[in-house]
Amino acid sequence: MIKIGQSLINGETIRNQLRLNQTQLEIVERMSASQHVFSYDSLDQLKFELKLRNDIVETAKALNDSGASFASFSRSRANPAYWHLTDFGGFQLRYGVKPSDAILDIFMNGSEYAFECSTAIIIVYYRAVLQSIGARSFNRLFPAILLFDGQFDEGLGLTTQDLSKTVILPGDVLYFDNPDYNPETPEWMGENVVYVGNGFFYGHGIGIMGAADMIDNLNTLRKPGARRSAYLMDRVARPDFASLARYSTDSMP
């Protein structure tokens, strides 16, 4: 269910008021069909979430096509013109570099980059937010970016919810756990993914595929004699859409 102010709004009303692409249509349909209430102070706030979710999906696809490689933290690499590679395999924004330029370079010069799936998710978030609020607001909001294993600026406002309290929507981040991973390759203990819609997920180093194929791929990366299958965990991560909406002057593409 979708609630704007004090009123419940059906999906058809929203579809009639807004020009939505296929990703955004799926979002509205899943929200409307859910027993859980998605509440917004205004239509503009909902419009911003639809835009940012779409930008997360498009950014995930762009990162998949960027040429950036998968690597463990010890083998991570980044363009030294924009990033300082830390001792623990993170990317620290260089002094004097605009955050927006550094994030966009990952997508323009992907072959110079290699990182784990958790870092990929943070990169997706930053680039999508950049697309949604513009470079000026982005650079003011995120002046000192560190890209590393789930580290994120509080401005993103990331939270995790149990799927018993919500429904999976395009732009959500989930996790496939691989409990019997091979200890010689701990980077495959699981895969952070973006749900890109229509039953498909993007995972850095694996690609874009359905849940069954994602599980099959992880199952090939288990220790000898493994008996427990990889599986999709029942939790979902999301940024604080309402807070980020304050930095946007135009909520729709």
Rank of each mutant, 00 (worst) to 15 (best):
A81C: 02
F70C: 06
S34A: 14
L46Q: 01
F48T: 10
P80H: 05
N79M: 11
A114N: 03
Y95C: 05
P99K: 08
N79R: 07
Y95Q: 13
D87L: 15
F48E: 00
F70K: 12
G67I: 12
N79L: 09
G67Y: 10
I103F: 10
Q35M: 06
S34H: 08
S74Q: 14
L93D: 02
F38M: 02
L104W: 02
R94M: 14
D65I: 01
A68C: 10
I103L: 13
V37K: 06
G90I: 11
D55F: 12
G67H: 06
H36L: 02
S72L: 14
A78W: 02
S69G: 12
R53I: 05
M108W: 07
D65R: 14
D41A: 15
L52G: 09
S69P: 00
A114L: 08
N109T: 09
A33N: 03
V37E: 04
Q35W: 01
T86A: 12
E112H: 13
F107N: 02
A78C: 15
G89I: 12
G67D: 03
N54H: 07
F107R: 02
F38D: 00
Y82N: 11
T59Y: 05
L93M: 15
K51C: 03
A62M: 12
E112K: 09
R77F: 15
K61R: 14
G110F: 10
R94G: 11
E58K: 12
W83T: 01
R94K: 15
I106K: 10
S34P: 04
P99R: 06
Y113W: 06
F91H: 09
H84V: 02
T59D: 03
F107T: 03
G89W: 11
V37R: 03
R94T: 11
A33K: 07
L104M: 13
M108H: 13
S39P: 00
A78Y: 10
A33G: 02
K51G: 13
A78L: 08
S39Y: 02
G90H: 11
D105H: 05
G96D: 00
Y82L: 11
N64Q: 11
G89F: 12
I106G: 10
R94F: 12
Q35Y: 07
K61G: 04
W83P: 06
S66R: 01
F115S: 01
F70M: 14
N109G: 04
D44H: 10
E58Y: 07
E112W: 03
A114V: 04
D101A: 15
E49V: 04
R77C: 15
P99T: 11
R53V: 08
Q92L: 15
L104I: 04
A68M: 08
P80C: 10
F115M: 06
P99Q: 07
A71V: 09
L93S: 13
